[in-house]
Design a protein around this nucleic acid. Structure first.
Lengths: 210, 210
DNA sequence: ACAGGGAAAGTGAACGATCACTAACTTAGT
DNA sequence: ACTAAGTTAGTGATCGTTCACTTTCCCTGT
C-alpha cells in the first residue's frame, strides 16, 4: 500500500519531481499527468497544492531562487586579493550547479522563453561577478585608457561567458570534454586565463582589497 | 482574395514561418494550427508538404544547417596571421547570427532537449574555432609547459564561451548591455582579450600561418 | 477504552479545449 | 478537363482542470 503523506510533505514531493521534469523537458514538454505519475498520485492532487500548472512552475522557480548562496558576503567580508576572491566566487558558483544541474537547465529555459520574473533572478546570480569585476577593474585601469568602458564591459562579459560555457559543456553536453576535469582545477584555470587577459599579473595580485 | 501559391513556394512560406515560431517557443510550444494560422492556410495543407510536425521541425533544422558559411575556407586559404584569422572567423560567425538570430535560439533549444542530430550540427559550427585554436596553440606553446592539455582546452573553451556569451546577451536578453556595440568593435575586442589571455602579444602575431 | 465525527489526503471520471493528423470534397490555374 | 492547391469537417488522443466521491487519520466526549 502507498503510504499517505501530510500536506507539506506531499507538496515537497510534487515540487521535487516537477523541478526535475521541468528542467529536463521545459514547461510545455511536461504534462500534469506526467508529474502526477512521477509522484505516484492522481492528477487532481496537484490542484490541491497549486492553482495551476503555471503556478506550480513559478513555485519551482521560486524554490530554486531561495536556495541560492550569497557570493556577496565572500567579497565584502574577506581581505583576500582579487585572484583569491574571484576563484572563490567561481568555485561557489560552479559547486552550486554541480549540486543541482537543474539550476543551469532552468536558467537556459527561462533565457529562451524570456519570462521576465525568472530572467531577473538568473541575471542577479551573474551580477555579483560583473559587479566585482567592474569595481576591481575600475580601480586598476588608468583613467586615461582608451575605450575604457567597452574594455571593462568586455572583460566581465568574457568572464561570465567562460564560466557559463564551462558549465554548459560539463552539464548539458552529452559528449563531454570536461568529465575528467575537477571543479577546483577548472575554476583555477579559468581565473588564471582571465587575469592574464585583463593584464593583472602576479606582481599585482598580492595587493589587498580595501 | 488570397492568391494561391505553387507547391515549392508554399513549402518555403511554411518553413519560414515555422522557423520563426520554433525559434521563439520551441518544438512543444508551437502547434500545427498556430503555424497554419501564421501562413494563412488551413492546417491540412502542412501535411501535403511534410509528413509530420517532427518532420517539419527536422526540415527547418536542415534548412538552417545548409545556410551555414564555411569559416574553414577562410583559415585554409588565407595567409593572414593568428589574430587576423581569428577576428575574421569571429566576425563571420557573429554576422551569421546577426542576420538570423533564430540560429542562436534554435541552437539553445536543441542544446537543452538534447536531440542528437541537431546537437551534432551545432557542435560542428563551433568546432572550427576549437580546431583552429588548438592547432595554433599547439605550435606556439612549448612542449615542456605544465598542464599543457588543460591549458589548450581552457583556452578554446574560453574563446567559445565569450563569443557565445556576447551573442546571448545581444540577441536573447531583453535588457541589453550590448545594443550600442557594433559587431566589428565587439569581435575585435574579444579577440584582443583572448590573445592577451593566451599570451600571444603584438610581437608574435605578425608571424604568418604555414 | 472506544465509538464517532470531522478534517484532510487521495481517487475516478468526466469537462471542454486543443493536440497532431486524415479523408472527402471544392476551387483555381493552365 | 485535368491537375494541383486549398478547405471543411472531422478522427481519437491528450491537454489542463474540476467535481463528486471515498479513504485514512486523529482528536474528542463519554
Amino acid at each position: 500500500m502507498n503510504t499517505r503523506l501530510s500536506g507539506p510533505e506531499r507538496r515537497q514531493s510534487i515540487l521535487k519531481a516537477s523541478q526535475q521534469l521541468f528542467a529536463d523537458k521545459g514547461f510545455h514538454g511536461v504534462s500534469i499527468d506526467e508529474i502526477a505519475r512521477a509522484v505516484n498520485v492522481s492528477p487532481a492532487i496537484l490542484y490541491r497544492h497549486f492553482d495551476s500548472k503555471q503556478a506550480l512552475y513559478d513555485t519551482v522557480l521560486q524554490e530554486l531562487s531561495s536556495q541560492r548562496e550569497s557570493y556577496v558576503d565572500m567579497v565584502v567580508n574577506s581581505d583576500a586579493n582579487f585572484e583569491e576572491v574571484l576563484t572563490g566566487m567561481t568555485e561557489v558558483f560552479i559547486r552550486s550547479i554541480d549540486e543541482n544541474p537543474n539550476l543551469l537547465r532552468i536558467e537556459m529555459q527561462s533565457l529562451l522563453n524570456g519570462d521576465p520574473a525568472s530572467s531577473e533572478f538568473f541575471e542577479n546570480r551573474w551580477k555579483s561577478f560583473a559587479d566585482y569585476i567592474n569595481f576591481s577593474l575600475n580601480e586598476r585601469l588608468g583613467y586615461d585608457v582608451a575605450d575604457r568602458e567597452i574594455k571593462i564591459l568586455s572583460a566581465s562579459l568574457m568572464f561570465q561567458g567562460m564560466v557559463r560555457e564551462a558549465l554548459l559543456q560539463k552539464y548539458l553536453q552529452p559528449k563531454d570534454r570536461l568529465v575528467d576535469v575537477s571543479l577546483n582545477e577548472l575554476s583555477h584555470e579559468l581565473v588564471t586565463l582571465f587575469l592574464k587577459a585583463v593584464g593583472i599579473h602576479d606582481s599585482q595580485i598580492s595587493q589587498k582589497a580595501p
